[in-house]
Computed example of a mutant assay.
Amino acid sequence: MEPIFETATVAPPPSGLRIESFVDGGAGGERALADDVLDGLTRPFKELPPKHFYDAHGAQLFDRICDLPEYYPTRTERAILTANADAIVEATGATELVELGSGTAAKTRLLLDAMRRAGTLVRYVPFDVTESMVRDVARALVDEYDGLDVHGIVGDFDRHLHRVPDPNPEGSRIVAFLGGTIGNFTPGSRRRFLRRIAAMLAPGDHLLLGTDLVKDPAVIEAAYNDSAGITAAFNLNVLRVLNRELDANFDLDQFSHVAFFDREHEWIEMRLRSVCHQSVRIERLGLDVEFAAREELRTEISAKFTRDRLTADLAAAGLQLAEMYTDPQDLFAVSLARKP
């Protein structure tokens, strides 16, 4: 294994493994959290972006959620990729895989294995906000895949997407955005983000997108209201993050987990409901926040898709839906879109 090149050092970049970090040793993440809290908790309808769920404890809770019987998206998406990875690689001829929100790259290996079988695998670009995760994945994959070039990016989608390296002009790339994370964006933000992804693609490149599908609302709501209470703990954990990082004094026992399917917008909403009238101090911001009894703070939306909605969103970004792979029950979809 070759040494890692970091932007903070003067060592020359090696050929096999490179990691670039744009989160300033965690300070950038703290600034983003402070900005989001100041913006979101001073609105008439309070909300926070879901990216702040994922500290170390939140990531562990989410891993447990993925194994719950009610939570179908992760295992269903994995089954779709298992069944169709070779077809995806054959259709794209891709030599490079860029993964946004790469995490542990568990599902990614299905695509990397297919690219290796096809003899096209050259480079993998994991992009994630958690530096330790990017480093661990990069080291593991360079060891697992002989000759693989890994260029890790530690950054935030909102600020650092332009840091993804240019594609190799001699090959084609897939940009993968899996897990249904695109559903966390509101419609306007979703289309703007898809346009930014499209700007990373050359003609003939592809976007591989995971989306949860519209279905029986009872199935959707059960996935976010599991009987073991793991999702509730995951939701409440964002308040623990604020207490630790911003010296706030949220009492987690004074908030309850709420998740419901909004039939008009066809998305799930997760909220935290104040069980009483209370005032919370966020010391590092010099901010006092009042919560009325039963007032709710929105922590996540997760949009569900139809083929028509997905096609329209992609078209607004200048992309064309090429293939939509689903499971037998039409619970989830992994879609391949191309730049015409």
Rank of each mutant, 00 (worst) to 15 (best):
E96G: 02
E70R: 05
P50T: 00
T82P: 05
F53Q: 00
S102F: 02
D36L: 01
T104E: 12
T82N: 06
V137I: 11
P69N: 07
K107C: 13
T82C: 05
D67I: 03
D128H: 14
Y71A: 05
K107W: 10
R117P: 08
V37L: 13
A118W: 03
F53M: 00
K51R: 10
V125P: 09
A114C: 09
K51E: 01
E96C: 07
D136Y: 10
A79F: 09
P49C: 04
A34R: 15
P73M: 05
D39G: 00
F127R: 05
S132L: 14
E96P: 07
R43H: 10
V137N: 00
M115H: 01
L81T: 06
A83M: 11
D86G: 06
G58I: 02
A56R: 11
A105K: 07
K107F: 13
L81I: 13
L33T: 04
K51T: 07
L38K: 10
G40Y: 02
G103R: 03
Y124S: 12
L33C: 02
I65M: 14
Y72I: 05
T76M: 08
R116M: 11
A34G: 04
E70Q: 02
V134I: 14
P126Y: 15
L61H: 05
A56G: 06
E70S: 09
T120C: 10
R109N: 01
